[in-house]
Design a protein around this nucleic acid. Structure first.
Lengths: 241, 241
DNA sequence: ATAATGAATTGATATTTGTCAATCCTTTTT
DNA sequence: AAAAAGGATTGACAAATATCAATTCATTAT
């Protein structure tokens, strides 16, 4: 396999180098690219900054780009009929927003919105197709990524379908702590409504469950900051339903 | 591109020829394979027949094979805690059961069970990896397949989360009519319990909705056979809620 | 500092959905 | 034909969840 450190290829942005974004120790699907391929991506991509609240990708628009999150937090929203919405998951550093129609109908099937300021790169889908054609390792990585999302969504589906509200809130808290923020008192930066939208319940119901957890000593809450005090209890509640 | 009719490669089964299964006019991901590659698959695969009710793949077992449905109807089940289960979708002729952990943890994330007698082929995952490595068109097709499943599951998730029971039953009926059986009075071959499990509701609730639809003249029901009389009404109910 | 805005919380109530038990069919077995 | 078995249906009721309105709280604007 070819070497793939390409600091020198980075012409567009000096400080926060794209090559480093694609290649900063974190394993991601771009690890499978050759120097030339990475260079091609770096040259072609567009680097964009979104402020909190801005829409990065909009459901039902045409999906001509793959977006790579470099810094910040964003939420993936499935918009339903009326103003109903479901937040599917959060994405942070190094997330790659593919899936959702890229390879089939070229239509976005979800909206992506910045929670904090988000720095990201837009890559033309054509480039991705090209890489899939030329680099089987990349294709493999992409398949892996797709599969992961698939499995996550499946678990989500099962959870939301089969669990009562306390179980769903437990799952959400565990997800936030262990998959997204990776630290214990964590600042969600999300409103109660948004948190509720991740569990498929109303804000009021969500708040009530949170209150119960609080008075049971399972968590401590201070505004958008949540401190998990008894993770085992959450696991237990998650399992029970 | 190479020609890909390979009747002569078919040594294992004379009558229902595997090559024909992979290459009988229906477009599927194997259309992208070369003659040699198809031959390789045909040689290596195992051909198995399951009777109605038998488990084809079991959730949480190791996922070392991709299964290709040749004939019959099967259901994909996500098993939750306790004896809760959700039927994700049905699969019929020419369906390819990939996804669900093949490329990531090598674990099945769902169970597949035969509804009618099912004739299918087991293909070693290694062979699939090999094809992905060597044939970018195949990789592309596989990505497409994965994406489709992803989008379908997303729609499912949104529907089950955001719609009331009548909307979900409408969606199910439309799915059965237009995506699975492709004819109008259709015989589901599924019990009420199984139909309910596709909508994430209890059997009793499902029956009640079905009864309402029947008395509204939207459908006619005779045991497992359902006749959609007013598809527009179903679409309307699906949208409303 | 005060008013105004919007989110968070709480309470009362309505709606949706599930549970449990009884009964009705239909099919199979005897 | 009678009995038994199991799925389908119905009804009464309970539990889960949503809705609506009121109130509190924190933050921004005046």
């Amino acid at each position: 396999m070819e070497p793939r450190r390409i600091e020198e290829a980075c012409i567009k942005c000096k400080d926060r180098c794209c090559a480093r974004c694609f290649d900063d120790g974190e394993e991601n699907i771009f690890s499978s690219l050759t120097t030339d391929e990475l260079e091609m991506l770096v040259k072609e991509k567009r680097h964009v900054v979104f402020n909190a609240g801005e829409t990065i990708l909009k459901q039902n628009t045409s999906a001509s780009h793959v977006v790579c999150i470099k810094r910040g937090l964003a939420k993936i929203i499935a918009e339903g009929e009326g103003d109903r919405k479901l937040i599917l998951r959060l994405v942070a550093n190094h997330a790659i927003l593919t899936g959702g129609g890229i390879f089939i109908d070229e239509i976005r099937h979800f909206t992506v919105q910045a929670v904090t300021q988000v720095e990201c790169c837009f890559i033309d889908s054509e480039k991705i197709y090209e890489l899939v054609s030329n680099n089987s390792r990349f294709a493999f990585e992409l398949l892996k990524l797709n599969n992961q999302q698939n499995v996550q969504m499946l678990n989500n589906l099962v959870g939301i379908t089969q669990k009562y509200m306390p179980g769903r809130v437990s799952d959400l808290l565990l997800y936030l702590k262990n998959d997204i923020f990776l630290c214990n008192p964590f600042d969600t930066r999300l409103s109660r409504q948004e948190l509720a939208d991740m569990t498929g319940m109303t804000m009021e119901s969500f708040i009530r469950i949170l209150k119960e957890f609080k008075s049971s000593g399972i968590i401590a809450v201070d505004g958008p900051t949540i401190h998990v005090l008894d993770e085992d209890a959450l696991h237990l509640i998650s399992r029970k339903g």
